[in-house]
Amino acid sequence: MSEVTIQVRTAPRDRRFPTQNQTNHCWARYIEFHACAKAKGEDDPECEKFKRWYMSLCPAEWVEKWDTLKEEGRFPGPE
């Protein structure tokens, strides 16, 4: 069993999404990550931050679905 270091941190509050409905927050973070990954590469620390945030906010099922759509070239958002 390997030791895992736990850091207590999560996606910060975003002033663009001040309401109870956080659906667009999750979506925006997912888009931001892919935009960043396209520009700087997936392993860039700046992009890794966006990935952590969308992982924190979006249900795993949604992320899986969007990833599949991306792979199939059917993703409805910006590529």
Binding site: V8, R9, T10, A11, P12, R13, S56, L57, P59, E61
Partner: peptide
């Protein structure tokens, strides 16, 4: 208030 943890419940 700037949260330290996010938990999703479905």
């Amino acid at each position: 208030i700037s949260p330290a943890i996010t938990i999703k419940t479905l």
